[in-house]
Nucleic acid binder design. Structure first.
Lengths: 105, 105
DNA sequence: TAAGTATTTAACTAATAGGTTAATTATATC
DNA sequence: GATATAATTAACCTATTAGTTAAATACTTA
């Protein structure tokens, strides 16, 4: 449980969860949304993975990250983010991204 | 929210919350239950205070700590602790302590 | 096969966390 | 007022965290 709470104790990581709330995203797509180096972001992703909050699926040269929807804490964060000033817009952006992904299939 | 998750990311601190789940305890009574110096424990208490999870009331030379019951995360932890192997016995001990406190009043 | 793109790993640095002991503050008691 | 007790603060040490840039790995495509 330490790992889970530790993972959730970072604004960056909770934002990542918000971005993933409505759609899957590649490491690069996530990274584009933060002013931070790719290696730094990659570390955040691995922390979220180790906590079991997200999973990564390699497809060719891309790694597609998605929420582990069965995870109680991922769901809790998804709920809490609605009450967080920064959370809502990120969730909306996640929904927009999902729409675009579906229409381009 | 960072402070809250950070506070919850420590087993020691979650145990403190479990001990406080059924009764108030002084800093010393809490400290007695951990193999750690009093100053170290005092720091844990102040981290929990800063996160708004517990409050301390000074009565004479003692400081009585208690859960902030209105805090969503304190309640969440109280709930989660039931499913945690270490959590249950601590909550039971907390209930025992509460019983003794009441009978000695 | 060479060159380009996506991602992670390695090596490093600065700041933070979590512990220690010693000192301080505040209250109680003789 | 001197002494003991409860708790916190101060000063210090070590380990971990969060970032950086450079290098490595894996895949795609000309």
């Amino acid at each position: 449980m330490n790992d889970t709470f530790q993972a959730l104790s970072s604004t960056v990581r909770r934002k990542i969860l918000a971005y993933l709330s409505k759609t899957d995203l590649t490491a690069g797509e996530i990274s584009d949304r933060f002013e931070m180096s790719k290696p730094a972001l990659s570390k955040h992703l691995s922390i979220l993975m180790n906590a079991g909050l997200i999973q990564g699926d390699k497809k060719g040269q891309f790694v597609h990250y998605s929420l582990v929807k069965e995870n109680l804490f991922a769901n809790m964060n998804d709920f809490l983010v609605n009450f967080c000033p920064q959370g809502r817009p990120l969730k909306m952006e996640s929904a927009e991204l999902a729409k675009n992904k579906n229409s381009s299939e």
